[in-house]
Computed example of a mutant assay.
Amino acid sequence: MPHRKLIARLQAVGGLSERDKLRLARMPYRVKSLADGEYAVREGDKPGSCIVVIEGFLARQRVVNDRNQISSFYLPGDMPDLPTLHLPIADCDLCSVGSSTIAAVPHSSLREMMAESPGLTHVFWRETLLQGAIYREWVENLGARQALGRLAHLLCELTTRMEFVGLADNGSFRIPLTQQDVADACGLSIVHVNRTIQELRGLGIIEWENHILTLLRADELQVVAEFSPEYLHELNPSRGSVSKAGLGF
């Protein structure tokens, strides 16, 4: 059910009343399964609905100077095209990374819910602001860090966001990314990505086998990445000290 991860995501970053949770649980939707590389939205589309990621990953991407550039990954619970409620033309492609499942919620239903609930209006607005904050962090990551820091930062962010929706188990989760996906997200070549992953493995900081990523020493990865989770704006940022799974929460 698409509302479960969406509620978990919005609860983590915005807070929800019981009545608003019920509204989300009752929202209409249409489920679609996507194969690896299949598009959910194409640049220039005029969507009449917003997507909720149920399973898997989506990537926001554009081709720039003949190179594919990924500018964000979207995880279960995320609504990657929420801005289309007010910006009707999609400005990027949304593509499935590995297989994924999405739900399309009509714009009309979302507008109706927000008209009934100032709380939902607030939390959806907050979610669009958080997407902007993540985007700015990615720009700074690409512009200011070397390869090791870029990759480490990406892994810290993905782990933290997976924790928000209960999909990271003791610092370990399934990550469908290929080395090409990482290269497109970090502005690196595949060869450079491979060397950087091997460096992190050699330091004993991560394990990454068969699409399962495990942070062995999350605190050290955080230092390499210069990672601070404040830009993700979780409402309960004090769940524990830095640990293998906690990343500072």
Rank of each mutant, 00 (worst) to 15 (best):
L213E: 06
S241L: 15
M79Y: 06
R9T: 10
Q146H: 15
V53K: 01
V13I: 14
I54W: 06
R111P: 06
E209R: 15
G14E: 06
T128R: 13
L110G: 05
F73E: 00
D45V: 04
M1S: 13
G77V: 00
I206C: 07
L177A: 07
E112D: 14
V123Q: 03
G56M: 03
I89M: 15
V123Y: 00
F57V: 14
I51A: 04
D66N: 14
W138K: 12
L16I: 01
A218I: 09
R136Q: 13
T160A: 14
L87C: 10
V182N: 05
G77I: 00
L158V: 15
M113N: 11
A147H: 08
E157S: 10
P76K: 02
L16Y: 00
L85M: 04
C92W: 11
H192D: 14
G240C: 00
R126S: 11
L177F: 07
A218F: 07
G166C: 02
A185S: 10
D45Y: 03
L16S: 00
E234Y: 10
I7H: 05
S100M: 02
G187L: 04
R67D: 09
L215N: 06
P237Y: 02
Q61V: 08
Y231N: 02
M114R: 07
E38F: 05
N210C: 08
A144E: 15
L75N: 01
C156A: 01
H86L: 15
Y39G: 09
L221T: 06
E226T: 12
M113D: 10
P229E: 05
E112L: 14
A12E: 12
I205E: 02
F57T: 13
S99L: 03
A147W: 01
I102A: 04
A133R: 13
L85P: 02
L75C: 02
A25G: 09
S117I: 02
G240I: 00
G248P: 03
S96K: 02
I70S: 03
S243G: 15
H192P: 08
R42F: 09
W125R: 12
A12F: 03
G48W: 08
E112P: 01
D219P: 08
R145V: 04
D93T: 00
A147Y: 06
P229Q: 05
G14N: 05
E220C: 08
H122V: 12
G98Y: 00
Q179Y: 14
L24T: 06
F57W: 15
I102R: 01
M1L: 11
V97F: 04
V182T: 10
V165F: 04
M113W: 09
P88C: 01
D66A: 12
V165K: 02
K46F: 14
L34M: 04
S33Q: 12
L34N: 05
D93N: 14
L130G: 01
G246Q: 07
E127Y: 14
E163Q: 13
C50S: 13
I54S: 07
T84I: 10
H86K: 14
S117V: 03
T159N: 11
R195H: 15
L22F: 11
W138N: 13
R239Y: 07
L203G: 15
A218Y: 05
